[in-house]
Write a protein that binds this DNA or RNA. Sequence first.
DNA 1: TTCCTTTTTGGCAAAACAGCCAATTGATGT
DNA 2: ACATCAATTGGCTGTTTTGCCAAAAAGGAA
Lengths: 105, 105
Amino acid sequence: MTNSDKKKYRLRAEIVKAMAHPTRLFFMNELAKGKQSVNALREMVGCDISTVSKHLSVMKKAGIVVDEKVGNQVFYSLKLPCIMSFVACIETLIKENAVENISCL
Amino acid sequence: MTNSDKKKYRLRAEIVKAMAHPTRLFFMNELAKGKQSVNALREMVGCDISTVSKHLSVMKKAGIVVDEKVGNQVFYSLKLPCIMSFVACIETLIKENAVENISCL
DNA sequence: TTCCTTTTTGGCAAAACAGCCAATTGATGT
DNA sequence: ACATCAATTGGCTGTTTTGCCAAAAAGGAA
């Protein structure tokens, strides 16, 4: 594995890691429907606003979402909708796994 | 967020987490080309065989890979090739981000 | 059986992550 | 200026993850 390969996989991992959390996957789902303020997202998940803000900052740093200030508040939106096709694939995998579990009974 | 929603996102996160590591993303790439033994993968990445085995076991538990015993050794292969289309999407995102960084100079 | 090869498991210490509170920053209005 | 609302940041603790070594399984060959 070359050095630039290592960099490549580290870069990919940074993005995948930024999705690897239930709350952040939920945000992706909501933001795919349209932009939302930090507080609106907070209300949906019910945890501390600082926690929400930190989740969003991780996603922003990875380039998954973009933020936009409107007056007092900050709206986040999904940067690349193609990201959601990946979620569809994950769902396929979940269904596959479920079928397998059933056949193992 | 309903209870079954929470479960849904936890389930998704489990799979995404199993990909969220440079070494594991590299393995996905290699296994997409064809099955490989644990030791062959170890030689590619250069870390301890126990580390490799644990990475693979995480991926297997998540349903990303399947294993197959052949005599002495164990071969792993990618379960759902569709997973790799997600990597393509990540690459798009990386390129997008790179372009943005350039325009910020 | 004994030896050798391949892989998995247990255990441990270092590093990274999650989520809360408190304090701060930023924008708006009085 | 002051108060208020929205969001971010710092700091802290508890949890999870990583990656190594050593030990144990699991096969195959002598």
